[in-house]
């Protein structure tokens, strides 16, 4: 499989601000790739570098083997779904979707048919004559998707496309986007700050912080084996065990991560590790109870099934977990 997007030590500096700082990426053709991070982490700037709205301060970008530096957005086989959808308010939905074909000089009949097909694909047939102002947020999002896909891009860039939708609609769109990507086989690059969204949709995730990639891997790897304290915290809220506890448990590295749901509030079975402490706080989260245990001053969160009884605050408890759930981390 060939490489869709290649970033070789790419930087983008705005004055003293290093928005993107030495990023290396290789996105495979047909991949659903997520760039995850808090706001200001550089993920959106990376997307804009791919779209051509920004030019790199250093490094090299290739899109399907062709150098991308200096190529304006309108000469790239890449299309974007914008965060605010950016539908043209003065054009009908059909003209919005047909816009890309219109500026390329495709005939009226042909582009009308292609736009209608694209609208049918995003489940909005017969909406062509309306104006963007007459559509709901979810419908506008679908139009934005159709408007990008009608151009048959090699890479589709999505900038927090689900950010403005409510939870239910968001979950529905996640599934639709995923199946659309599967059936079209187009490379999707997706920017989000929602780790749940990235984990459930992406084939691979790049976790960004301070303009750098902290970790790049499959959702499972990123979730279960966070490389840094930042990733542990941002993706799935893993516990980070400090050096003192690591030493006690016989881990070599200074820090280790431990997911809340891998811990049980019970005495250890054969071969399991255990720590003892006191219950500091607990809260009910629906399917689980979140119990915070104080172990020698370190606060460790435990996700305990809701069916089990919750110990009272201040009572001593033993927590146990399998040794292979403890993942050493590169740094703090």
């Amino acid at each position: 499989m060939s490489t869709a997007v290649l970033f070789d030590n790419v930087s983008r500096h705005f004055g003293a601000v290093r928005a993107v700082d030495g990023v290396n990426l290789e996105i495979a053709e047909g991949e659903f790739f997520a760039m995850l991070g808090p706001s200001g982490s550089g993920k959106t700037t990376c997307l804009r570098l791919m779209a051509g709205f920004e030019q790199p301060s250093g490094g090299h970008i290739e899109i399907f083997g062709e150098t991308a530096e200096g190529v304006p957005p309108y000469r790239r086989s890449v299309n974007t779904v914008f965060q605010d959808y950016a539908l043209f308010p003065h054009l009908s939905i059909l003209d919005n979707v047909a816009y890309g074909l219109m500026v390329k000089g495709v005939g009226r009949e042909e582009r009308r048919k292609a736009a209608e097909d694209a609208l049918a694909m995003v489940k909005l047939p017969n909406y062509g004559s309306r104006r963007p102002g007459q559509l709901s947020g979810g419908q506008r999002q679908r139009v934005a998707l159709a408007r990008a896909l009608v151009n048959k891009p090699k890479v589709l860039l999505l900038d927090e496309p689900l950010g403005a939708l409510d939870l239910k609609l968001r979950e529905q769109m996640q599934e639709e986007l995923k199946s659309l990507q599967k059936s079209l086989g187009i490379t999707f690059v997706f920017v989000t700050h929602d780790q749940g969204e990235a984990l459930s949709m992406a084939d691979r995730i790049a976790v960004f912080n301070d303009g750098r990639i902290q970790q790049l891997g499959s959702p499972e790897e990123v979730y279960k084996q966070p490389k840094t304290r930042f990733v542990a915290d941002f993706v799935g809220s893993s516990n980070v065990l400090p050096a003192k506890l690591c030493q006690k448990l016989g881990v070599r590295s200074a820090y280790a991560s431990l997911r809340p749901e891998a811990i049980a509030l019970s005495a250890p079975s054969e071969g399991a590790l255990s720590l003892s402490g006191t219950v500091a706080a607990h809260s009910f989260l629906g399917a689980v109870n979140r119990v915070v245990v104080d172990v020698d001053g370190a606060r460790i969160a435990v996700a305990s099934p809701a069916a089990l009884a919750v110990p009272t605050i201040g009572s001593p408890v033993t927590i146990s977990f399998a040794a292979n759930e403890l993942h050493p981390m590169e740094d703090a």
């Binding site: 779209a51 051509g52 309108y74 890449v78 299309n79 914008f82 408007r147």
Partner: peptide, 14 residues
Amino acid sequence: SGSLIEASMDLGAD
């Protein structure tokens, strides 16, 4: 909105 102009360029308009 600035993104309207970017959207137009993104869709292939010079």
